[in-house]
Computed example of a mutant assay.
Amino acid sequence: MELTTVWFLLIGVLWAGYFLLEGFDFGVGILLPVVGRDERSRRLAINTIGPVWDGNEVWLLVAGGATFAAFPEWYATLFSGFFLPLLLILVALIVRGVAFEYRGKRDGALWRKRWDIAIFVGSLVPAILWGVAFGNILRGVRLDARHEYVGGFFDLLNPYALLGGLTTLVLFTLHGAVFLALKTDGPMRAQSGRLASQLSLAAVPVAAGFLLWTGLAHTDGWGIALSAAAALALLAAIPLTRARREGWAFAATGATLLLAVAALFVTLFPDVMPSTIDPAYSLTVHNASSTPYTLKVMTWVAVFFTPIVLIYQGWTYWVFRKRLKLSDIPA
């Protein structure tokens, strides 16, 4: 297998890991106004992701860095053409991170309320815009012969991409509700379980519509098979959430996200950014990649450091595996 293909697959794995882990972070932030009816409840919800949210964002940094090093042409076109949406995501992530750190710095209801709003908005915006961005990548954008994006911002707000944004929003929110039910006990566990059941019913038609549209537009056999597997995993989450089998339900929503990202990258290959002007103008794993020597050096670095990162992050989740309840939160 060529190194260009290897690195395309590795970048897909990094994005799948990011959506799997950061997805429930976003979901918890979006659900904060719903599950956090008082200060202790809000602190309980935030504490479920407190030890891991910043570590989960490392997957995004590595995915961006790997794209820059392995496919610089793809990185340049993506970040110039999608500059405004990516800037909005970046600002939202910064505001969200600051809110987590600052909401407890002062003992004031208004102070905490403002930072709680920042957590909600900082979670909501990326949850939508990541789906819009990947929907446009899969659909194709206006690239000219120089591989430069010649469309406008509103060209990115097409119906297919907006449906992609709605799909990631409902999937992340469902993933977050299941995670809260898995990580808490008592009233919040029961409330999060009910929310997960309701959200799963809403997520199925939205995700099914997006997958059906994708299947009609792209006839790749592996992509359709992976999309079908993602749909089955999402359907499995419905009875699991109702039966309060939170661990299995979280595995089902996690599998949905992993399989959906896998379907996206498999369908996209060998393109990395298709052109809607002329297929000959599309960026592919071949014309967008770095030199073979660069890819070889990157491969050795990845072989050495990736297991270390995975072991450390796995250890972090093991240490903070205990369920939390309101009695753990001091008055």
Rank of each mutant, 00 (worst) to 15 (best):
A249D: 01
F210Q: 10
M273T: 10
F210D: 02
F250M: 12
P239Q: 10
R323K: 13
A203C: 07
V301M: 09
L324T: 02
L199S: 08
A217K: 12
P239D: 01
A255H: 04
L264R: 00
L232Y: 14
L295D: 05
V266C: 06
A251R: 09
A230L: 06
L240R: 07
A260V: 09
Q191M: 13
T214G: 03
T306R: 02
S327M: 10
V309L: 10
V266E: 06
S227G: 15
T241H: 01
I277T: 12
S197Q: 13
P270I: 00
S227R: 10
D220H: 11
L324P: 03
T219I: 06
Q313F: 08
A236V: 11
K325G: 15
L226G: 04
S200Y: 02
W300K: 04
L235T: 11
A229E: 12
P239Y: 09
V297H: 03
Q191L: 15
W300H: 13
S289E: 13
S290G: 09
K322S: 09
Q313E: 10
A207L: 07
T267K: 07
A236Q: 05
T276P: 11
S327R: 15
A237N: 09
A231F: 08
A208W: 09
P205V: 01
H218K: 11
A243S: 15
A207D: 01
Q313N: 08
V266S: 06
R245V: 01
A217V: 13
S227D: 12
V204H: 01
Q198H: 07
L259V: 07
F269D: 10
A262R: 12
A252Q: 06
P274V: 03
S197H: 04
I224M: 15
F304G: 06
A249N: 05
A237G: 12
T299G: 15
L226E: 11
T214P: 04
W248D: 13
L234W: 08
L259F: 11
R323F: 00
R189W: 02
T284M: 05
Q313G: 00
L310T: 00
F269Y: 15
A217H: 08
D220S: 14
W315Q: 10
V272F: 03
G209M: 01
L212A: 13
L199I: 07
Q313Y: 05
I224W: 12
D271W: 06
A262W: 08
Q198P: 00
A228W: 05
A203K: 08
A217T: 15
R245Y: 03
V266T: 15
L257S: 06
V301D: 00
K322Q: 14
A236P: 03
L211V: 08
A231H: 03
